Amino acid sequence: MKNILLIIVGSIVIALSISFLGMPNNIADGGLIGIALLLYHAYSFSPAIVNFLGFIIIVLISLRYLSKSVLLKSSLTVVLLSFFTFLTEPYGQALADPLIGAIFYGFFMGIGFALILFAGSSIGGGSTIALVLNKKFGWNVVLFTFISDVVVVLSGIFIIGVLNTLYTIIGLFIGKLTTDYIIGGVDSKKAFNIISPKSSEIAKRVTEELASSATYIKGSGVYSNSEHSILYIIVKNYNVVKLRKIVSEVDSDAFVVVNNVKDVSGGTFFVDKDDKHQGDTETMIEHNEEIKASETTT
């Protein structure tokens, strides 16, 4: 239910961006939405109908190669996106400055796209074709998606002109930043690597005061040739200052390295404050920066 709600809200945000900012201000995009917008600017074709028909063709091509669950989620998203776009198409009005339209087009597209990604779906288009080509020929998904988006965006030079194409690129850049910030910032965390002779005391205070677990990793110094424990702790961003304060109070000379964490899965990283057991986790952490091939450059 939560994922469906995210898809609905994300589709509405993207549809409003297309109707109120992209269409009236001569802004384009990458992928299938970009093609739909360019056909609108050139021939006044409905972006909603072009996007829907284009996706139907893509689905028919992809049926043999992609799982039904992937296609079903994408189909739901595209149907809702096309429907909401069709309802709002007549109401957009041009802004006095198209650059402002491009900036906010990218911003709201980034928000909508992030919500859809959170739901585990996509808005189809170039990324779906890229997945099919990867299955059939082993082509690189990200590279193909990027190239196809670039081709669509640059073809806008012949339809909306050089200036509006540059505005489009600015909008896409802002959209990507917005999507990355939302995906990476909503539940972002940091990993602390702490070397201190008082690591056990630091670990105890962390589990008691921050409701975070901790892991001991055995290590040895090259210069001193002595063994010691490295304390590995993952905390949510709002607890970073508190953890730094704890380390400083326990051992102001502790060696501390802090890394950004994009994704955390498995293991026990956060514990209930009321839980009497506050032992260590023995799980290895993998730091993954997921590259999501999308239909737009956002």
Rank of each mutant, 00 (worst) to 15 (best):
T88S: 13
K292G: 02
F173K: 08
T179V: 08
N26T: 00
T179A: 11
I157W: 07
T88F: 14
F83T: 14
R205E: 15
L76S: 04
E89V: 07
E209T: 09
G22A: 15
D280P: 05
T77M: 04
G101I: 11
L243M: 07
K189I: 07
D263Y: 15
T215W: 11
T85I: 03
N26Y: 14
S62R: 03
I49N: 06
L143S: 05
N134R: 14
L231N: 06
V141F: 15
G126P: 05
N164L: 01
V78H: 14
I14K: 11
I159A: 01
D272M: 15
T296A: 15
F137R: 11
K273F: 09
K276M: 04
I170S: 06
F108M: 09
I182K: 08
S200H: 08
G30P: 04
Y181R: 02
I195H: 08
T207N: 12
G92P: 08
E282P: 03
V150I: 09
G30A: 11
K2N: 06
I195Q: 05
L231I: 05
E282D: 06
I234P: 00
D263F: 14
M1R: 13
S213F: 10
N237C: 11
D251L: 08
L63Q: 05
F45Q: 05
I217P: 02
A15M: 07
V258E: 14
E208P: 03
D149G: 09
A293K: 00
K236A: 04
L21W: 12
N260Y: 12
T179W: 01
